[in-house]
Design a protein around this nucleic acid. Structure first.
Lengths: 343, 343
DNA sequence: TAAAGTTACTAACGCGCGTTAATAACGAGA
DNA sequence: TCTCGTTATTAACGCGCGTTAGTAACTTTA
């Protein structure tokens, strides 16, 4: 294997010092270098095919040029997630523009503290974005006093960490109010995930609040808890159907889960929206192609990703926004999965 | 900000040299260290909350402990991909076990060479897995003589690079033969992506071959080319329906694309499998929940991910398997999207 | 002409760790 | 007592780069 080409080689070829090479290649304009010298260095670097060693650079500059995307979920759940690719896509787009790397990591409940410490203290990354954080995350306090910037994609009440999120509660309320406005009074709910995921508990709150405003009673037997994936939607919808409770509409707090719910309804011989109206949440790419196309809350996934990144960038520059929380708008996308009971 | 804790601090506290600390914490058994010394070092490290600096370690050992997953596609296509999360999930699972990091990267056509050089020469990663490679990838030759291990997830004819793949051609042939066996003679095809993606051209080959074996003529007007995502499936199916060609079955070489095709068929008032039989490819988590459940070729996504990783690990240890190509089995998962024309 | 800038560059240190070659301690054998 | 292995430990170098403090040359001002 041929020897690595270092900046010394470039310096030798260009007939200057290594320092000058560094200044030129990093466009360090605190020092003025004669244009012809710049040219000499540039061509020498190109000629040798010089690429600065990332580790050495990280060590010297204390910047890895990598940011971490941490997913609070096990790989088997990641595999069937339709929302994740949108986030990753949005993130990859913008990280590449800033020639940053994206390091993926998942963390299992109970191991959070150790994982975060390792990631931050070992300095694998310059900053991290924490996806779908859990209320019971045992490592969040440690992150608050970590020496690297952190952005929560999602909100944790009481946390000092900066965050990017939508108003899940308000969005869910909007979804359910839509059903109420159509005359539905018996509205079931399948939340997207277990309560410790804040998006889940907040969406449930929105559901409750919409019922309350409509003077409809909250019936816990009409509520089920899914687990991110399609299958759990299928199972929970069946559980609702098997119960003795009556309902004419369901708010399913995740489109992915709603796909499973659709299947369960079909299997039961019920039509959407003929028998049951459904409103989803997320607006994944699939929803317009479902049968019938799903009325849902649009999550601005790409925007969430990019805003998270930009917020993280600001924090890395020690430029702290006065408001630690960025809230992005959602809206209700009307398609064909609901029908009016009022005529 | 408090000072970083270095191995020197641990050494001081434990009353030994930095070298000893290094030996102990890396379990370097080429040197025998007295058990009580080991203990002293371990407790000192724990007490101080010492985490070795990743960059320094990478620089000294010439190993970053990161592997790269490179996606040959733009972010907007990544966003609606249902296959990617399965690969990522499988990869994350196994990288974590080996305390390796996973660095995500995408590369746009035309920029491959530069991207690969930068990634390998800068030594951001110890090895890379190249997803959905393109035949016209201008950087592959450079990778063959790169100084880091590379695994192709997919096959490039004539490349010396190691690869993990399924036999796309044979799998596609199996899918189409299934339709032939059911009595279909006019079988359309929507391939998953443009020809330069080897999986696309290989699946098309399989389609042709199955027709040939059944003594059915190949009609290029029955073939369309999708673009990975759902919408392209919708558009291409409509294009088939708008043409004057007749067909009773379609082989859609990607489940994701098939979702769009389903929607187009529904919109045209055609039933699956009543009017048109459909066979897909991939077996994404959604397929059992489609209406009707899609008969498809199962891609062992998780296995592909993990085998790719293990192959990469072998290459990193300079342990080169005699056969550069790992082929994984596929099978046809029969569901309810095809019907027999023979009675 | 000397002093005081200004411009263009470099020597040298430090980042934190892995690792080799060398040393010290210690008992066994002669 | 002296030599010869072990065994346990360390001094010191190198990984490749960023960066500060400093030097040399060259121009401007008094």
């Amino acid at each position: 294997m041929r020897r690595r080409i270092t900046s010394q080689d470039v310096a030798d070829l260009a007939g200057v010092s290594r320092t000058t090479v560094s200044f030129v290649l990093n466009n360090d304009n605190r020092f003025s270098i004669r244009p012809e010298t710049v040219e000499k260095v540039r061509t020498a670097a190109k000629q040798l095919g010089y690429y600065p060693n990332a580790s050495a650079r990280a060590l010297a500059s204390n910047q890895t040029k990598n940011i971490g995307l941490i997913i609070s979920r096990a790989p088997q759940y990641i595999a069937s997630d339709s929302f994740l690719p949108q986030i990753i896509g949005g993130l990859l787009d913008v990280t590449k523009q800033h020639s940053q790397g994206l390091l993926l990591e998942w963390v299992e409940p109970g191991q959070q503290l150790e994982t975060y410490l390792e990631l931050t203290r070992s300095h694998h990354i310059d900053g991290m974005i924490l996806m779908t954080p859990r209320l019971d995350d045992t490592g969040l306090k440690a992150l608050e006093e970590a020496d690297i910037p952190v952005v929560l994609m999602g909100h944790i009440p009481g946390s000092r960490l900066h965050s990017v999120d939508v108003d899940n509660r308000a969005a869910a309320e909007m979804a359910v109010r839509h059903l109420v406005d159509l005359g539905h009074t018996k509205i079931a709910c399948i939340i997207n995930a277990a309560r410790p995921y804040t998006s889940a508990s907040q969406r449930l709150e929105g559901y409750k609040q919409a019922l309350e405003q409509a003077l409809l009673g909250y019936n816990e037997y009409l509520v089920r808890e899914a687990d991110f994936d399609i299958k759990s939607g299928f199972l929970q919808m069946n559980s609702l159907l098997d119960s003795s409770e009556e309902f004419t509409a369901v708010f399913v707090a995740s489109d992915n889960v709603a796909v499973g719910a659709y299947a369960a309804l079909r299997d039961a011989g019920l039509s959407v929206p003929g028998d049951i109206s459904v409103v989803g949440f997320d607006d994944i790419p699939l929803t317009p192609f479902m049968e019938p196309p799903l009325t849902t809350i649009r999550m601005p996934a790409r925007e969430i990703a990019q805003q998270s990144y930009h917020l993280l960038m600001r924090l890395m520059k020690r430029d702290y926004p006065q408001n630690p929380e960025v809230l992005l708008p959602t809206d209700l996308v009307l398609r064909q999965s609901t029908r009016s009971l009022i005529d």
